[in-house]
């Protein structure tokens, strides 16, 4: 399996807002090429801010970030599906290619493939309002992957979904990741989700946002539904929960 992912290096990143609130303090983090890392922490710990700084959508007050800089090399999935309501699913997925100046025919073909890749073949002509919450999120993931990014950043993408959709999307996301092997950074406040998905979990605490610990999840891939009920999974969740508890007390 070839790894197409790109490494990310975060060095001493701090973020202070104009009103004096310290969102992040001294964050350093190395993410290997093709690695799946979760940022786990309570709300207000700055994990979204960190993700936006990695994406280049926000600036750090201090420190530096190394990431793939080419256009389309970074994909971003927001908390909400963030689709354009006036455009069909296919047109939404085409957007990054359109902005990159890719020709119409190629755009169509690649967007169609990306939709099929998330299990939405045949829904290209549907408008977002005609799709369920889970399907909209799938379109959003297809859009993020259509440029074949080397880094995929996800900001609690499944937080608003029901548990059934969420589990299915977790499984499908892992399958996509194993096939493409992009570097994945996944923000969540769910211990269970982070353990199921990641190779490494970075636990953060709030006020100011900082990294308190990093834990490896040893379980091998592919991880299927059966993994959710295994003793290994339960043990990992307990361990991560304990660290999260410490982080919240800190």
């Amino acid at each position: 399996m070839s790894i197409s992912g790109a490494p990310v290096r975060v060095r001493g990143v701090s973020k202070q807002y104009g009103n004096g609130v310290e969102a992040l303090r001294g964050i350093s983090l190395d993410i290997g090429a093709g690695e799946f890392v979760s940022l786990l922490g309570p709300s207000g710990c700055g994990k979204t801010t960190l993700l936006r700084i990695i994406a280049g959508l926000a600036s750090a007050t201090a420190g530096s970030v190394e990431r793939p800089v080419g256009r389309g090399e970074t994909g971003f999935v927001f908390q909400e599906p963030t689709l354009m309501p006036w455009a069909t699913a296919l047109a939404n997925v085409e957007l990054p290619l359109k902005l990159a100046g890719v020709g119409r025919a190629e755009r169509r073909a690649r967007a169609g493939e990306a939709l099929a890749g998330v299990g939405l073949a045949g829904f290209g002509n549907s408008y977002p309002r005609e799709l369920s919450g889970g399907m909209k999120m799938r379109v959003s993931i297809a859009r993020a992957l259509v440029t074949e990014p080397r880094l995929l950043l996800m900001d609690e993408p499944f937080a608003a979904l029901d548990e059934i959709s969420r589990y299915r999307l977790n499984t499908d996301l892992l399958a996509l990741w194993q096939r493409r092997r992009f570097t994945a950074v996944f923000v969540t406040h769910s211990v269970f989700e982070s353990v199921f998905l990641s190779q490494r979990i970075v636990v953060m605490s709030a006020r100011p946002g900082r990294i308190t610990s990093a834990l490896d999840v040893e379980a091998s891939y592919p991880r299927e539904e059966a993994f959710r009920t295994s003793a290994e999974y339960a043990a990992a969740c307990r361990r991560v929960s304990a660290h999260l508890g410490e982080a919240m007390a800190a």
């Binding site: 256009r71 389309g72 971003f76 927001f78 963030t82 902005l99």
Partner: peptide
């Protein structure tokens, strides 16, 4: 939508596009 604006920024769309 602020996030859509971020998305356009991410893909390097200028003001005009």
């Amino acid at each position: 939508d602020r996030n859509l604006l971020s998305l356009f920024e991410l893909y390097g769309a200028g003001r005009w596009r």
